[in-house]
């Protein structure tokens, strides 16, 4: 009988019947995995199955390919500390939605698990929105790399130089230096300093989120004929409100 025990992050909870739920988690060693949780609507389990919660999980099924059942115990709840902060809640929801729709099922992604847990820890503990948003943007860039669509931001795609990299090509995802951009500057995405750009702008967070959002939409979600998940769009909207400027996606 196939079974495993692991730490896992709750990504999604869909009610199944009257009291059960199909829960999708990102586990440390077994990747994105779904399973049935019995009595999920009970008072003792309802709070545990909130997305973004870290749980200790036992999965068991009769055959490997079956949905199987989960038994869970709450280890840590990042969202509980963020209920009064709309930006943090949106970031947690966005993070879970991107993983849940973006990565294939039952493939181990232990690096992604570790970085996501670290990110949620930073989001829940940090008092400074700019600081945790910087980590969030780097996490999205890391997610792109992990999915095989990493951005090449170390050197200029045109000249090979590593100096004054301030743009990113919206097609190739490669950095472009100020000297090489020529007449295409208005078509380029801004490379913020937080992702290795040469110039610190006053809209670092917005530029960073636009950049990763553009490539997540174009390279990951377009391929599966989907738009960016709604929580990611809401995060972009809140950031644009907060930083008082507009974001493409």
């Amino acid at each position: 009988m196939p079974e495993w025990s692991d730490k896992a992050l709750i990504l999604e909870m869909r009610p199944h019947g009257e009291s059960n739920a199909v829960v999708t988690v990102l586990s440390q060693s077994y990747g994105r995995h779904a399973g049935l949780v019995h009595a999920a609507s009970s008072r003792s389990k309802k709070g545990m199955l909130e997305l973004g919660n870290l749980v200790a999980t036992d999965w068991q099924a009769r055959l490997e390919g079956q949905l199987g059942t989960f038994r869970m115990e709450l280890e840590r709840s990042a969202p509980a500390a963020c209920l009064d902060n709309p930006l943090k809640l949106a970031a947690i929801a966005s993070c879970c939605a991107l993983i849940n729709t973006g990565i294939p099922e039952r493939e181990p992604h232990s690096n992604l698990f570790d970085t996501t847990i670290a990110l949620l820890e930073i989001i829940s503990l940090s008092e400074d929105d700019d600081a945790w948003l910087t980590y969030y943007i780097r996490w999205e860039a890391g997610l792109l790399t992990m999915l095989g669509f990493g951005l090449e931001l170390e050197r200029c795609a045109v000249s090979g130089t590593t100096d004054e990299l301030i743009y990113v090509s919206p097609r190739s995802g490669c950095a472009v230096s100020r000297a090489s951009v020529g007449t295409f500057a208005d078509r380029m995405l801004v490379l913020p300093a937080l992702l290795g750009g040469a110039v610190v702008t006053n809209s670092e967070i917005s530029s960073g989120l636009s950049l990763t959002g553009h490539f997540l939409g174009r390279r990951v979600f377009q391929l599966i004929h989907q738009d960016l998940p709604t929580p990611r769009l809401r995060l972009a909207h809140l950031v644009s409100r907060r930083y008082n400027n507009s974001i493409i996606s």
């Binding site: 909130e50 209920l83 709309p86 809640l89 949106a90 947690i92 929801a93 809401r234």
Partner: peptide, 15 residues
């Protein structure tokens, strides 16, 4: 409710 969805809804309405 004091859930991620409940509070996201509350923040949205607040906005």
């Amino acid at each position: 409710s004091a859930t991620v969805d409940g509070q996201t809804t509350a923040h949205y309405i607040g906005e």
